[in-house]
Amino acid sequence: MFLELLKGFWASTGFVALTPGHMIMIVVSLILLYLAIKKGFEPLLLLPIAFGMLLANLPLGGLMSEPVVEIIRDPNTGELVSQTKQLGGLLYYLYQGVKLGIYPPLIFLGVGAMTDFGPLIANPRSLLLGAAAQFGIFFTFIGATVLGFTGPEAASIGIIGGADGPTALFLTSKLADHLLGPIAVAAYSYMALVPIIQPPIMRALTTKKERQVKMEQLRVVTKTEKILMPIVVTILCTLLLPSAAPLVGFLMLGNLIRESGVVERLSKTAQNELTNIVVIFLGVTVGATASAEQFLRLDTLKIIGLGLIAFSIGTAAGVIFGKIMYKLSGGKVNPLIGAAGVSAVPMAARVAQKVGQEENPSNFLLMHAMGPNVAGVIGSAVAAGALLMFFGG
């Protein structure tokens, strides 16, 4: 009797259903947890993503299980109606915020509330650097189509080059939701690895003299300019690309809340409580999409490889355009700030600051790099809107 109970207990455990694929993904999740905790690589995002991946690959937990629905005939009306026979898992319901495109705009609301657009206003030329860094998106889009991906799939893969996780999730949820897992993990992993990926590219494309350039202090931006900026950008971008309205609109709403000075409570909530809650939900559910069954495929390896190419080319394009501005300005622009055109805010700007200070300890590029960095956020949202317009049907 006891032996029968023991056998029944063992058969009900996840150990019985554990496959080599599950074990591989568990190891991957543990590596990501190590990078987040020990190395500090974007832990706010990487830690919940890695733990979500861990949960999804522990068999029989059912956290991402879809609800079981059956169609029955109503005995009173005779009409066919759906009836939920079994509820889905917890993460399945939280994941609807990703699938329905709810979480990414809320993240943008927080980003807008936390970001000072002053450097971009003070130096409008930064928009060109932000735009140049989006080149990786369109280059990789072409590469993905060559490798056999459809137009919507290629657009979703290419957007990884913007180094903007919420934008990648938003576009993929609209165009190719079956690729959400690998695209999300690739996008957020490369965002976390910005301090490792970008510096070698930056050094390879610039000379020591260029990296040592000290830029002039930015002018003081007035409060009126800061208030008008999000309003004007919202109107222009939404009229030009209505499909970009959810991302651009919420980004600018967050910034207006910050700069208006009349809703301090809302500003603090957007920057802290709301953003933190959404990041937890988004991170865990995105990680949970990376199950062994969905993730361990040849297409996933292609996506991860293309994502790295997209991010690298975006960084290189920003630096190259920075070199052009260096030449045209007579050596007054440090090309390193071009790398901040990818929209990993504010990490890419910090990397530009760090690489610049390594060459010249008295060099302070952070505020100059924030201009292209903010422009990159806007640029990636606009690029996503354009791709959604072309492939969204």
Rank of each mutant, 00 (worst) to 15 (best):
S291N: 06
S291E: 10
S291H: 09
S291R: 09
A292R: 02
E293Y: 11
Q294N: 15
L296D: 02
R297E: 10
L298D: 10
L298Y: 09
L298K: 11
L298G: 07
L301I: 13
K302R: 09
K302E: 11
K302P: 06
I303P: 07
I303M: 07
I303D: 03
I304W: 03
G305R: 12
G305A: 10
G305S: 12
G305D: 06
L306C: 04
G307H: 00
G307K: 02
G307I: 01
L308M: 07
L308W: 01
L308G: 13
I309N: 05
I309C: 08
I309P: 05
I309R: 03
A310Y: 08
A310G: 07
A310N: 11
F311R: 14
F311M: 13
F311H: 13
F311S: 14
S312V: 02
I313T: 14
I313R: 07
T315Q: 06
A317C: 08
A317F: 11
A317G: 03
V319N: 01
V319L: 01
I320Y: 12
I320E: 04
F321C: 13
F321H: 10
F321A: 09
K323N: 06
I324K: 10
I324H: 04
I324F: 13
Y326D: 13
Y326M: 13
Y326G: 12
K327L: 10
K327D: 08
K327Q: 12
L328V: 15
L328P: 08
S329L: 02
G330W: 04
G330H: 05
G330I: 02
G331R: 03
G331E: 03
K332S: 14
